[in-house]
């Protein structure tokens, strides 16, 4: 059951599989890294000092780009109803979708950070902290994205609300994940990872409850 669900989710969300729209987050991420040096000027020191933060913001935005297709489509199609009739709980559906969502952007984003780092003049210790931070933080970003997508799926002003909800929920990951770059200490990455794990643990239940509420609404 889990593999069947995962295979369907991946085929819908994974970049370059099926619809072209799914590779957008990755291209968006690289575009930000490419354009940033043009926007602030080619001062290597400035780029090295601020580049890590820009990569984090780009990663955050890349994680929320596919939000509209994460949950809403399946509500409209009636997929969740049919799954419920087959006694598949909303929580397990959401847990699988969280894994699929992260797989569809997390690993590729970490890989894409290498060319982005070259463009932003990030090297050595900074690059290492950035990569570790992204590995620790992206599951949390995926979890926040899925939670928001599920909570706002049945609302008409959902898109506007997603943006508002995103700020407080992702702030802790950014403070510790991106903050590790400014302070140059790896300990905060541990915090980012812990927050990430907590979000990953909560999300299937929150998103599952949101889907049930949407069904009743």
């Amino acid at each position: 059951m889990i593999t069947t669900l995962l295979r369907r989710d991946l085929s819908r969300l994974f970049p370059f599989a099926g619809r072209g729209g799914a590779s957008l987050p990755l291209l968006f991420f690289l575009a930000v890294a490419m354009l940033y040096p043009f926007a602030v000027g080619p001062d290597p020191q400035l780029l090295a000092r601020t580049g890590g933060g820009v990569v984090w913001i780009a990663a955050l935005l890349a994680a929320i780009l596919p939000l509209d297709r994460l949950v809403q489509e399946d509500i409209t199609l009636g997929v969740f109803d049919q799954l419920k009739l087959r006694n598949v709980t909303a929580e397990s559906v959401m847990a699988v979708r969280l894994v699929a969502h992260w797989l569809s952007f997390g690993p590729l984003l970490v890989l894409a950070t290498l060319p982005a780092a070259a463009l932003l003049n990030l090297e050595g210790e900074t690059l290492k902290l950035l990569l570790l931070g992204l590995i620790a933080g992206t599951p949390g970003l995926a979890a926040v994205g899925l939670m928001i997508a599920a909570l706002t799926a049945s609302l008409r002003a959902g898109a506007a609300l997603s943006g508002l909800l995103l700020i407080p929920l992702t702030l802790p990951i950014l403070i510790f994940g991106a903050g590790a770059l400014a302070r140059g200490d790896a300990a905060s990455i541990g915090f980012a990872g812990a927050i990430s794990l907590a979000l990953v643990a909560v999300t299937p239940f929150a998103a599952g409850a949101a889907i049930r509420a949407a069904r009743e609404g």
């Binding site: 085929s11 819908r12 099926g18 199609l77 009636g78 109803d81 049919q82 009739l85």
Partner: peptide, 16 residues
């Protein structure tokens, strides 16, 4: 007994 519901939404992915 298990329930099967068929409504106006066929629950089939449009792109597949």
């Amino acid at each position: 007994g298990d329930i099967g519901l068929m409504d106006e939404r066929p629950a089939l992915d449009p792109d597949r």
